[in-house]
C-alpha cells in the first residue's frame, strides 16, 4: 500500500532503519508535489510505477516472512500509516488541518496584530478548496479551519515562522485580487490630476486643479453642455458632496453615450482625480456613491423578443 511505512512494534529505531522523521517529512509521502493536479487524486496503490510515471511513489513492499526469519517478533508486525488521517475520507485536508492546529497551538504565544492591519488575503472558498484538494471537505470543518487560518495570519509578520507561512500557502487562492493595487494618480507639474471614469458607454477624462469652481466640459460650460440641471448636479456631485465645489476647477473631455451616461461618467472621473488631491476623502466619496463604477450596460437583445425582455404582441393566429 502506498504511503505506508512498516513499523515494527518493539523493534528499535535502528531496526526501522531511519531516525524518526519530522512531521513534514512524514507527510511527504502523502503530499502531492504539485498541490493541485486538476482536481484529480493521483495516488497510486500500485507498487511498480513503470507504466505510469507519477509524482507519487509507493513505498516498497515489505516482506514480513523474510523479516520474521530474522526477527521473530516481526511475525506480529502490522503496517501503520504515517498520517493520522489516513483512514479518513479527506486525508489531504485533514493533514493540513491537523498541521495548522498544531502550528496554532505551538505559536499561540506569538504576538498578533489587529486583523484589519494584516495583509488582505483572499482565502480559498469552500468550493475552491474541494476543487483543489479533490476531497469532499465538510463546510463545518472548513469554517473551523478558516478560523485557525485567520488566527495564524494575524501573527506579527516579523515574528511569523516560515512554517506558518508555508502552511497557509495551500489555503490561498491562486489569484490574489488584493495584490492588484491601482496605480496612484500623479499630480503633474501644473497641479492637475487626471481621473478617468466610465458609465454605460460614456468615457470621461477629468483634469482637476485647484481653483474656484469653474467647470469646462468639452470646451463648454456646465450649463452649456448639460441642459438638465440634474445632469449638471451629477457631474459635479463628487465635489458637491465633499464641499469642494469652490476649491477646484475641472477641465473635462467626455465622449460616447448619452447625456446621463456622460454626466455620471464625469462623476467618477472627477471623484478619482479628487482622490489624487485628497486621498482622505475616500470614505466620504464612497458614501456619496462616487467611487464604485456602475457596471451595468445595455442588456442584449434576445431572439424571439422585441427588445431585451419585451415579448412580441400576442396575436390570436
Amino acid at each position: 500500500m502506498a504511503s505506508v511505512q512498516l513499523r515494527l512494534r518493539g523493534v528499535s529505531k535502528s531496526l526501522n532503519g531511519r531516525a524518526r522523521q519530522p512531521l513534514e517529512q512524514q507527510f511527504q509521502s502523502l503530499r502531492l508535489t504539485t498541490p493541485i493536479v486538476d482536481g484529480r487524486r493521483c495516488l497510486s496503490t500500485e507498487a511498480d510505477q513503470t507504466e505510469r510515471p507519477s509524482s507519487i511513489t509507493a513505498a516498497p513492499e515489505v516482506d514480513l516472512r523474510q523479516l520474521a526469519k530474522r526477527y521473530k517478533i516481526a511475525q506480529n508486525a502490522r503496517p501503520l500509516p504515517v498520517s493520522r488521517s489516513y483512514f479518513t475520507r479527506t486525508p489531504i485536508f485533514n493533514d493540513r488541518y491537523l498541521a495548522l492546529d498544531h502550528l496554532a497551538k505551538t505559536y499561540s504565544n506569538l504576538p498578533v496584530i489587529p486583523a484589519a492591519d494584516a495583509d488582505r488575503v483572499s482565502w480559498k472558498t469552500l468550493a475552491d478548496l474541494r476543487q483543489s484538494f479533490g476531497e469532499p471537505v465538510k463546510a463545518t470543518d472548513y469554517v473551523k479551519c478558516l478560523t485557525i487560518i485567520k488566527r495564524l495570519h494575524t501573527i506579527h509578520p516579523e515574528l511569523k515562522p516560515d512554517a506558518v507561512t508555508a502552511a497557509l500557502q495551500d489555503f490561498k487562492r491562486d489569484v490574489q485580487a488584493f495584490l492588484n493595487v491601482a496605480n496612484p494618480i500623479p499630480i503633474d507639474k501644473f497641479g492637475r490630476a487626471l481621473g478617468v471614469g466610465k458609465r454605460k458607454s460614456s468615457t470621461a477624462r477629468a483634469f482637476v486643479v485647484e481653483g474656484d469652481g469653474q467647470v469646462l466640459v468639452n470646451g463648454k460650460t456646465l450649463a452649456d453642455y448639460f441642459g438638465r440641471i440634474h445632469d449638471r448636479e451629477s457631474a459635479v456631485w463628487a465635489l458637491h458632496s465633499t464641499n469642494r465645489i469652490d476649491k477646484y476647477n475641472v477641465w473635462a473631455r467626455v465622449e460616447g453615450g448619452g447625456t446621463t451616461g456622460q454626466a455620471e461618467a464625469l462623476t467618477l472621473a472627477i471623484a478619482k482625480a479628487l482622490l489624487a488631491h485628497e486621498p482622505a476623502l475616500k470614505p466620504a466619496l464612497r458614501r456619496a456613491g462616487c467611487v464604485t463604477r456602475d457596471p451595468r450596460r445595455v442588456e442584449r437583445k434576445k431572439h424571439g423578443r422585441v427588445k431585451a425582455r419585451k415579448g412580441p404582441t400576442w396575436v390570436k393566429r
Partner: peptide, 16 residues
C-alpha cells in the same frame, strides 16, 4: 453661504 453660492454658480455654468 459661500458653499451654496458657489454651488449654484458652478451649476449655472460659471454664473450665467
Amino acid at each position: 453661504d459661500e458653499k451654496t453660492v458657489s454651488e449654484k454658480w458652478t451649476l449655472a455654468g460659471n454664473g450665467v
